[in-house]
Design a protein around this nucleic acid. Sequence first.
DNA 1: CGCCAACATTTACGCGCGTAAAATTTTTAT
DNA 2: ATAAAAATTTTACGCGCGTAAATGTTGGCG
Lengths: 335, 335
Amino acid sequence: MEEFASVSGISRPTISKYFNDPNSVRQSTRARIEEALDRHDYRPNIYAINQNRRLTKNIGIVVPYSTDPFFAEIARYIERQCVEAGFSPTLLSPHGQVELENEIMETLRSMKPAGVLFAPLGRASDKAELERFCKDVPTVLFDSNVENVGRALVASDNEHFTSQMVDYLCRTGAPPVLFEMSTPPNPNSNKRRNGYLGAMRHLGHEPHVISVPGEGWNFEEIGYREGLRVLSAPPEGRSILCSNDRLAIGLLAAAYELGLSVGHGAEADLRVAGMDDHPFSRFTCPPLTTISQDYAAISEKGVELLLDAIDTDAPAGSARTDILFEGRLVMRKSA
Amino acid sequence: MEEFASVSGISRPTISKYFNDPNSVRQSTRARIEEALDRHDYRPNIYAINQNRRLTKNIGIVVPYSTDPFFAEIARYIERQCVEAGFSPTLLSPHGQVELENEIMETLRSMKPAGVLFAPLGRASDKAELERFCKDVPTVLFDSNVENVGRALVASDNEHFTSQMVDYLCRTGAPPVLFEMSTPPNPNSNKRRNGYLGAMRHLGHEPHVISVPGEGWNFEEIGYREGLRVLSAPPEGRSILCSNDRLAIGLLAAAYELGLSVGHGAEADLRVAGMDDHPFSRFTCPPLTTISQDYAAISEKGVELLLDAIDTDAPAGSARTDILFEGRLVMRKSA
DNA sequence: CGCCAACATTTACGCGCGTAAAATTTTTAT
DNA sequence: ATAAAAATTTTACGCGCGTAAATGTTGGCG
């Protein structure tokens, strides 16, 4: 930088200022710097920068399972938002393992990020550790809630998701049963079950929940395996609402294998609906009726709230900002 | 570190040595350090470390499309391998855009990584830029080849993939047509086409390639849209080999919509096969017959070759190590 | 017991940059 | 034109660590 300062005829502190914010120097100075810049292609050393800045320009993004297309997609949105805001996002994922989630928090600490967007594992998360982390680093939770942790929460209104879908299914046919995991790794499932129970009762129907066994994040596999079992004697009403699209994808595969036709036509054996608008649900057989989450809105709001949190110190004890997004019913052929 | 050195009763340079390699200090010293460590939970500042080390312990991983479950999955394997070898992996993805691929190379340069595992965009890649990058940073290509770039290549034997599948399909029914994109974003498609052509001729059949239009990485969408068109008059022989699983997933959705039954039974209208063993292909309707890539083997070998490349300087002009993995035929119900 | 090698310590410097304070120059407003 | 404001330069220090060289210490060996 010293060298570059001399060849560009400008002092080093000014160059430093320029790289922190090109608009903080005079227009003519900026032009001179940028001219010198493409003659010598100098780039400041990020490590030296980050060592000396108390706050780096890094933003951590944590998703529970990066190979899940849903999380991959939303992470992609968030990354773009961060870059546009002038930050460097880093994506980390514990792949469903608590120990890795804790390791990730350690890694993040040493990255001294300006802020973190965190989609926790949920049920499995080490809440004490998470709470301690959020005390030190401005963190916005997304997708999945952990009570009283973080500066804000941006998620879907999962209760409303199910009630929306239950409304639709009841309006167009028999009341649905709920197909879910008995020990879901993610707390959203519980909200969805509550939404289902409430909506069914509100409409005067008796709720019926099918809780299937299964551990971990292999939702399609669980949906398929348990689907084979459950569908050998399809539930009365023959309308099935799956707790999420990935379970539905497995269930559809099971229905297909059993020779059951799925759809909303009179001739169909079964109606199946999911939730999340998983990227693949457009290509299932038949295409899956579902509730779509607004990826763009969630990620935008999440980043916006994080940037707020970053430049306003946490007023200790102040209430967390919680924002829930409603879903959009996507009617396809499965229900 | 100064502080920690004094409370632990050991000199700072020795502490520094310890963090670079705990085995480089005497056993008794190591014990004393580690004892002090859990009393004061000190952690060295990575930015200061990386500034002073000529080579960081970072490894860059680049995949063309991180939301594609195939790449997400292989990236996950690679990340794990890197961590086990004591490195810090960073996953980056251009999401199909060349400009972003070039930006990523810039980002990587400033990260001063020990090495990079790079799955290039392929056809779209800026080859000159990529070549320059690989001159400066030890890089191992994977998945997709760019001629004479990088220190090694670890990929699937794509020609063999198709010939393997063609053999199978011909042995069990009519010779297949090849369903592919006319302008695939990835060069592997060309290898696969060549494999198809060669295998068909070798078996004495006339090859028949259906090249459908479509841009970008929305393979399912293209497979679906063009599938609807192509399957309105199914090709003779009614055996279709798709250039990759994602196209096949779209094609299966189209077949389903058109009421065509897919399978290898006598009563089926169509046989469909894919390639890659996409995580979702077990749950298509019917489950997709495909060629599986060995994720674990590819990632292991890739990391191994990169570590080699890292501690042996590139003998200028020396030949690149190319390793191709054979696929395994996965027989499911679609063909 | 004394010697040698391996390991630790002391001392010292430098990495590339942020940043503060004071002095100076340039720009803007009056 | 002149004063005030804004931007820049000069000077100087520190961040937290790697690393080299010289010196000191330890433990095992004959």
